[in-house]
Design a protein around this nucleic acid. Structure first.
Lengths: 169, 169
DNA sequence: TCTCTTTGTTAGATAACACTAACATATTCA
DNA sequence: TGAATATGTTAGTGTTATCTAACAAAGAGA
């Protein structure tokens, strides 16, 4: 029996454990203490201890010396976190051009702390860029890439045409 | 005498204390325990305890029953954090259109955890938007605002002109 | 099957950070 | 000046999350 209570907000750490377990379940079929400890970069006793907490909250099932398994609630939370993680990684690496490894690290921290509002709007922003009708990336984003690299704006070779677009005439 | 050592990375919490002290020094001239406790939303004993830690690291000076004052090193760190805070707040509120209060909260968390790379590129992004030659906000950003509100893209009224701009002809 | 290796758990220590209750100093103003 | 009030500190506790050392169970090969 666990002592779960509804409003109880999960710590960043516990969310991370859930996320890692979800990844392992997906990649390897099962989540073992040793693998969790490797991905979380902690020693195995820390994992055992975390699993006890999570089991107590009804988010994982865990028999002594056995695998960890996400419950329905555990999955719900883990998938939410993973979704945010992916969105953030995409924003950082594909729009801000952050090295993927660094981007993943930053995403790992942001995924737990950002407000739902920010997540939502950032997600919309990524979508806005990705579903652009232009083939590669939107023109302005190419302009930003250039600005990132050189600190200078791309000179517009057709100001008149640009003005036309801007004024919508 | 303090026990500062160079590589020692400051915790998010201690960075927050420095930031709050910097804000109070700027706003009120001096930083008092009570004001710090109010801004940090903790009780006064937590402040006393934090000040001891920070004094030990050579980041604040604090006489019993007196004010807290940032040292040169303390200021350096506090101003860095504040700079990131302002940049992040601007990004969230002015580009992502997050409610200022929520934006400030999110900035408070991100300011401690984002990698230097991400801070730098995000900062460049904000600058890229702000120094746009267009009067209000860049055209594409207006497009994003509309997309945020409606979920739909602004229809381009002059596709040919847009194509001309895109191809640079 | 029996031993060796791997994996997992328990117990106990430590660190960071918050809290309450009790005490000490400062400040205010009658 | 001397209470009353406001502010700051100390002492002791609790929580979360980590670790090491020692022990327990599972699995694999000869």
């Amino acid at each position: 029996m666990h002592t779960e209570s509804v409003g109880e907000k999960l710590s960043s750490n516990m969310e991370d454990y859930l996320e890692v377990i979800a990844i392992l379940e997906k990649d390897k079929g099962v989540a073992r203490v040793k693998d969790i400890s490797r991905l979380m970069k902690v020693k195995t006793p820390s994992v055992t201890s975390a699993l006890n907490v999570l089991a107590d909250k009804g988010l994982v099932e865990h028999e002594r010396y056995g695998y960890a398994e996400l419950t329905r609630n555990g999955k719900r939370i883990a998938y939410d976190v993973l979704k945010r993680h992916k969105m953030l990684t995409k924003f950082l690496s594909s729009i801000l051009k952050i090295d993927p490894h660094v981007a993943a690290g930053d995403a790992c921290k942001m995924e737990h702390t950002l407000s739902p509002e920010t997540c939502k709007n950032l997600s919309t922003f990524v979508e806005f860029v990705e579903t652009s009708s232009e083939v590669d990336r939107p023109l302005w984003l190419k302009g930003f890439d250039h600005y990132l690299k050189t600190g200078k704006r791309i000179q517009c070779k057709n100001k008149q045409a640009l003005e036309k677009v801007k004024s919508g005439k």
